[in-house]
Design a protein around this nucleic acid. Structure first.
Lengths: 281, 281
DNA sequence: TAAAAAATGAGACAGACATTCCATTTCAGA
DNA sequence: TCTGAAATGGAATGTCTGTCTCATTTTTTA
């Protein structure tokens, strides 16, 4: 029996793959089943798992013992821990990583922190997204002649991705950048037949707010992505989304905003296609 | 007893929060514990959970029954399902969502798809990231006088975020954009004392490759983020990262790339700070 | 091919499990 | 303060659990 008992799932997985060749037939059968259906191992009983895998419960225990565990139960712990860790309230993980990074725990910790922040944000938004708002926003944008995309500073990467994606979908759009210093003129072109996607988070870039105000006063409908109902953008917008991004090391994630932005973009593309099909029919 | 038994965790959670006020003391105690420690409910036994929550096992069962379940076991199923779903090989989930979206399942499905794609990518990268490469890349970039950031098209949003973050950290950087049409000149300024972060995924934007080649020939070290060892960027780079982003509806996620980019950026910031502290000492 | 060793199947068994039941306590309303 | 109902604690119960043992089969070795 091995002295080194695999404590975490990845090690266990590696060990199993390593020994795959040398394992007895029935044991190998369970090994394959375990790697294919780790969730079943985590939640099932020895009897139910054995039945699913087509072996006797005793074989399951022999499998566990062969790997160095003292029984099925301790093997199962590893599979359960895996689910716990992967899931484990990303918030907690994030906090732990923040503390770790503050203590100067190296660059891997920083990386893990950004991954955790992104995951937290994604979890959050998929829980809180208002489906009706999504529908409204997409309808509104799908009717627009030109979609203006408005965002600066931290939100600018999202805007540029939206513009890229709209372009690829052949949807007319205009990114309002500051480079040329012609924003006021560009904004003036927008009419109520157009629409705007505006993105801004606290501290709201003054230029974004100003341009959003102007454009709203021209009667152009705005879809806003922002971070709270107190956001100035929320006031100007026909539809607005609240997106709470987790931050790490002073930088907020963009993952949730990106996901929402892409859903809007592709949603508009779909809607236009189905509408034009109807018109032809 | 209620006819409408909450089948999924979110509904259950909402139901509990809704009734919180009207629940008897001990039952409320479990309710609070259940929402705070959902993992314990998923994995524990009625006895162990009851002990942790400071109540009798029988109370736990009454809690379950009050919610419309016929016993603790069926309540537990919901908590287990939650872990299963959240984790469940995001790949599978993604595939299911892709099929669903293809069948025209509405805009929520599209959104879920982008969230799943982002989560998959994040899971992937945190499993496969090479720590040594991360260290190498950060050392290399921390020594640079100016960090040039090079990316077009789909990767451009990442580049613009890197530029934003470097700016906030007061690290000299230059984003190589195409707007002004002066890329060749900008690239020519780079010297071996500088460094480049280049990002490109298949199909590689020809301009990125060309500029990367030129700049590499000038002896400027390149850190590349790309998608395979066959990438032309990998050849020019001193250090390169392989990032596999999942795609949805024809658009690849950027989450993993973003996380890596932020880790590089903040890592460089940290490294510089600790180095300058050493110099002073 | 024969003998030894390893692997397997199937049932037995003790312990832990969720659940139920009932006595006791707490609470609400008059 | 009294009374009935609701809530609670704690032990009893029957089922199901993981593990063990041992007879049988398969594989390996000489």
């Amino acid at each position: 029996m091995d002295e080194r008992v695999p404590r975490d799932f990845e090690t266990l997985r590696a060990t199993i793959l390593d020994r795959r060749e040398t394992l007895p037939k029935r044991i190998a059968q369970i090994a394959a089943y375990a790697l294919d259906n780790p969730d079943d191992i985590a939640f099932g009983t020895a009897a139910s798992i054995a039945a699913s895998a087509g072996v006797q419960p005793s074989t399951l225990i022999r499998f566990a013992q062969q790997l160095g565990f003292d029984g099925f139960t301790s093997l199962q712990q590893v599979f359960r821990e895996r689910l716990r860790e992967r899931n484990s309230s990303y918030d907690e993980r994030l906090q732990a990583l923040r503390a770790k990074a503050d203590a100067g725990a190296g660059h891997r910790a920083i990386f893990d922190g950004f991954v955790a922040a992104a995951s937290t944000s994604l979890n959050d938004i998929s829980r809180t997204l208002d489906e009706a708002h999504l529908e409204d926003a997409i309808s509104l944008l799908a009717k627009a002649e030109t979609i203006y995309v408005l965002a600066k500073r931290r939100s600018y990467p999202v805007a540029s991705y939206i513009a890229y994606a709209l372009g690829k979908l052949k949807i007319r759009n205009q990114l309002i950048e500051s480079a040329a210093g012609l924003n006021a003129e560009m904004v003036a072109f927008a009419t109520p037949a157009d629409a705007v996607i505006a993105i801004s988070f606290s501290p709201y870039a003054p230029a974004t707010i100003e341009e959003a105000r102007t454009i709203a006063e021209q009667g152009v409908p705005i879809v806003a992505i922002t971070d709270s109902s107190f956001s100035p953008l929320a006031q100007f917008a026909k539809v607005w989304f609240e997106v709470a991004e987790a931050d790490f090391a002073g930088f907020r994630s963009l993952s949730a905003t990106m996901a929402l932005a892409m859903a809007l973009t592709v949603g508009v593309g779909e809607k236009r296609r189905s509408t034009s099909r109807k018109r032809k029919a």
